[in-house]
Amino acid sequence: MKKKNPHLRKALDLAVKGLSSLGSGIGIAVLFWILFEVVRRGAAAFNPAFFTELPAPPGVEGGGLANAMLGTLMITGLAALFGVPAGMLGGVYLSEYGRGKRFGDVVRFVMSAMMGVPSILVGLFAYGLLVVTSGHFSGWAAVFALAMIMIPIVSRTTEEMLLLVPNALREAALAVGSPRWKVTLSVLFRAARGGLVTGVLLAVARVTGETAPLLFTALNSPYWPDKLSEPTANLTVTIFNYAMSPYENWQRAAWGGSLLIVASVLALTLGARILSREKKT
């Protein structure tokens, strides 16, 4: 090997160290830049009316996004109601029944492929399956799309968490005569509770901010979401529509909606992290 000047080598090393600190600094700076702008511009839109009233027409001051907040809560909540049990049972199959079986491997592969499908294509699927056949946009189609996004996420974490439970626990519970369903639900689920809740929180956080799958399903609406069989108001599509509009008061409302979304997603994500850390120590 060619002999190199040690000063040069040290200088290069120092340069790379400097670069890597700078790179990390850029990553952090971007995160805080985004959070700062969202909080600053979003908080300016907050007032009592913002949380209690229907949207105002362009150019008219006042009004709020209460209908969109309610709609997002309804759509996300219902999606979790369907997606979480389905995902958990799928994860139970993968960890408790499908070990080493070819069908289990196929399901595992398809689940990971499902996780990688762009969410806008899930929206396209829900549009073709539910909107075209029923003849109108609906909140239910959005619920379907979001549940489909949640299933592989919940299933993956459920499988991972159940696999962490020692086999001795299963054997002990089975040995005293408990049926398998009871072993799974009251022994394994209890042992893995922290991890399971973490997985659910992360899945809910993920779909709370989803916009693309709602574009062709829930669409949006200026009215209260009293029926999910019609176009349903929701925060993320409202943000998109308002941001693209030329009206200043709508753009301000879009920032208010953004702050709400960011706050809920970060609260869910950090909550999940705290839970999983408590579990470990």
Partner: peptide, 10 residues
């Protein structure tokens, strides 16, 4: 964790 639409707004 930051949703795509927030990156869009920013």
């Amino acid at each position: 964790a930051i949703p795509s639409i927030i990156y869009g707004m920013w």
